[in-house]
């Protein structure tokens, strides 16, 4: 089997995640889709690391995880405080960014 297949899988997962971001309204689910996209990237990095025969790809994936963790912490905090004030986790309710 050609390891490039891992890249195809990563691309597929990334696209699914992106589509999820676009069609879901619940902020939590939307956030999960972002995590899915990040994981797809990580898979690609790991596969590249194997192809190129060095560990830099894995290091980047490692950092991605760290940053994703930080992002999740802040993002969920935002969702919680949003829910407290609006009693809703729908991103469409926050639609004041217009005239």
């Amino acid at each position: 089997m050609n390891p490039v297949n891992y890249l195809y899988l990563a691309a597929l997962l990334f696209t699914i995640g992106a589509a999820g971001v676009l069609i879901r309204k619940n902020a939590i689910v939307l956030f999960m889709c972002v995590e899915l996209m990040l994981n797809a990237c990580n898979l690609a990095f790991v596969a590249f690391s194997r192809m190129h025969g060095n560990l830099d790809g894995q290091i980047i994936a490692f950092f991605t995880m760290v940053v994703a963790a930080a992002e999740v912490v802040v993002g969920l905090a935002i969702i919680v405080s949003l829910f407290r004030t609006r009693h809703s986790a729908s991103v469409d309710d926050a639609s004041l960014m217009k005239l």
Binding site: N42, V46, A61, M65
Partner: peptide
Amino acid sequence: FYLANGAYFLGVVQVVVYTGAIMMLF
């Protein structure tokens, strides 16, 4: 898949940190 690609460390971290911690947070 990480494990299969030789990224043993990341594979374990993925289970412990992502699936264990982050998803539980979710």
